[in-house]
Design a protein around this nucleic acid. Sequence first.
DNA 1: TCGGATCTTGACGTTTACGTAAAACGCAAC
DNA 2: GTTGCGTTTTACGTAAACGTCAAGATCCGA
Lengths: 133, 133
Amino acid sequence: MSATYSITDLARQFGVTTRTIRHYEEQGLLSPRRDGTSRIFSNRDRVRLKLALRGKRLGFSLNEIRELFELYDLAKDEKKQLEEFLAKLEKRRALLEQQREDIEVMLNEISFFAGQCRRLLVGSRDDKTEKVA
Amino acid sequence: MSATYSITDLARQFGVTTRTIRHYEEQGLLSPRRDGTSRIFSNRDRVRLKLALRGKRLGFSLNEIRELFELYDLAKDEKKQLEEFLAKLEKRRALLEQQREDIEVMLNEISFFAGQCRRLLVGSRDDKTEKVA
DNA sequence: TCGGATCTTGACGTTTACGTAAAACGCAAC
DNA sequence: GTTGCGTTTTACGTAAACGTCAAGATCCGA
């Protein structure tokens, strides 16, 4: 019923190489079924790949991402370890909020610099370049 | 007049190793004066180290950070290359905004999960644990 | 003057996240 | 049947960002 994907399907969809996807499987991030020797990826795999790539953009290591996946799954089972999970979540939150701050600072600096640049570009020429792109 | 710092000063201030700082100098991110053979870091160096570490948190490579520093300095000189600078700034901005989006998504997911967890923790026990931490 | 702390420059080691090449299999089209 | 694409495993290579000694210079207080 649910859609399935070949390895190159997924690779193309997300702009990564097949090597990358195999690597993620080796690292335990993905676990596609097999049709003979070929990998068959489910929607679950697709979602995991998407999450993994987002995690990477945020600077998480593959190991950390795998841990998160495990906790994610685990949370459905054992209530006992929920506190541990919560603690990890809070750590992540703190990290992310730090990053968010960093990003705001950076964006502000970029705005400032861009403004400076545009002013210089306008002021320096004797063109009639009135249009401030 | 202006404060100066030894290599271990800076290392301690920012929670990195001296090796890291030497590495950054090798990569052209820092250029301390010398007192004989010893490195003497100025406030400018300190700021650069701070910026470098922030850049790292945002996933920039040391190479990219060095490029940014160079553009930063360069922008004071040549107006000619300001457009190039502006273009790079815009690329950064796009990247950062993507990251910001990623972070928002993540934070929302974390909030959601944390909520779920707390609900489970409360609902599962027959303690009188009324305090929802 | 001697020991300890701090600094230096090599230089090789390590981890992460893949790249890349080799050799072989399955299958569909021609 | 063979050409060719897509896939597989195996395995060595690599770039970045440091870690980790090693061996020596320098300074400083007891």
